[in-house]
Design a protein around this nucleic acid. Sequence first.
DNA 1: CGTATAATTGATAGAAATCAAGTATCGTGG
DNA 2: CCACGATACTTGATTTCTATCAATTATACG
Lengths: 254, 254
Amino acid sequence: MTKEGTKAPSGELDPREQVVSRLTGFGDLLDDDIHQLAAMGGPVRQLARGEEIRAEDDAPARLHLLIQGWAASAITLANGSRQLTAVSLPGDVLGLPTLAIEQPIDTLVALSDVVLCDIPVDKLAELFCVAPRLAFLMFLVSQEERSLAMERIALMGKAPARTRLAALFVRLHERNSQLSVEEPLSFFMPLTQKDMGDLIGASAVHLNKLVRDFRKEGLIEIEKRFLTIHDHPVLLETAGVVKWRRSQPAWIPS
Amino acid sequence: MTKEGTKAPSGELDPREQVVSRLTGFGDLLDDDIHQLAAMGGPVRQLARGEEIRAEDDAPARLHLLIQGWAASAITLANGSRQLTAVSLPGDVLGLPTLAIEQPIDTLVALSDVVLCDIPVDKLAELFCVAPRLAFLMFLVSQEERSLAMERIALMGKAPARTRLAALFVRLHERNSQLSVEEPLSFFMPLTQKDMGDLIGASAVHLNKLVRDFRKEGLIEIEKRFLTIHDHPVLLETAGVVKWRRSQPAWIPS
DNA sequence: CGTATAATTGATAGAAATCAAGTATCGTGG
DNA sequence: CCACGATACTTGATTTCTATCAATTATACG
């Protein structure tokens, strides 16, 4: 395991802050909530890039709170090709969709070296009884991810690969900015070109040509696992999406 | 408004049963839960095929419980093309993903004549406080839909249109079967070829050729808004997906 | 019975996959 | 410190799939 994914550039929030940042995006956490959240955490694990996060025989389903590094949910189709259905950054809870079905349809894979902690599902059920406000915030986060998934479906179905790649960079930049006090245009992005291809539904070869084009046009630069956005306005224009804005609902339970 | 979408062929559950069937799939509802659920319902509306379910200026976000007919969530991209991101059948709650964001990214459209009732969001927030078990079941349904969305992303990214269409038919058949006491191989399916194309990310022209192929091969038949599956095993094989099985979690809060 | 919507068919063009081969980069161990 | 193997990246040629265009035929509905 190398040190990538564990480094903390200045300007980044500390890991604990990153974890709650996903929830506080919708509403403040009460001290009591934070206690409940901390109580859910089990032992901390570290995995190297490429390793699987969820064991095949994880009979009593578990959730995984990502503390450091990037992960993804991957589906392997009958024809053998791999598609990444979602990227996860620190603060995300992995494994929720699988709660609803008997057999997981996806595998959870570390895209960089990661640190995470496992959470037994009954802790989640408990949460709905003892901390309804917190449960509701988690519900909202899941709905946000559904919205993101819907956007991805639309892009995959009707937009050319160039557009999809631009949209990927835009959304990754936004998501990364939530983990930081500023909004840095250069940030840790450990995806290989193969990974990016698997995310937007393009071959590694085709993706390489798209990245080359973006580079030539002065839109972005990728170097040493860091993505730099040089021309954010044009990138947004190319992606054809608008800035992602979370709601600040007034109707959260107290 | 024609009568399609309001007819109830023998073998179908009555509307009220259909509505709770989505939740009871994961665990029994208590009498108290059913009371809570009924209390959420507002006035009933009817819309004709093609109409929009959510008004643009729906400032205080509302949810929509679909009682009869089919609906879909549609995204229109910058290039003007329309993609349907999810189909909804009776019993589904529409509008949840939008709770998390300031501006809806999708519109909700009636795919057949529909009957639905609106639900104010604060009712949902209330639910988390007074009926944690019911809230948890709704949480699970959302996770199931996330899983389905992930599968669709994978198919869109890496599977040819033929596979995607087969998968659409398979999943629609399963979803329809939940609304019925049997598992009929012929059922109401009001999608036009344009709709199906928008769902799987294919042009209407290409979709027509796929349907023709399926017909010639004796896989399916579409007639008068009814889909008949003639060769289910081969259809499953073509789709390259496995039967969808909901979990029966033992850890639901009581 | 006419008009609009939906379905159908063939021809052409474009986007992206696959194939094939070569180059760079990086971590590892001698 | 350098050589080595593995992984990642790069490029051009060819093939496959699917969109678009253009027209025609059905079907539904007022």
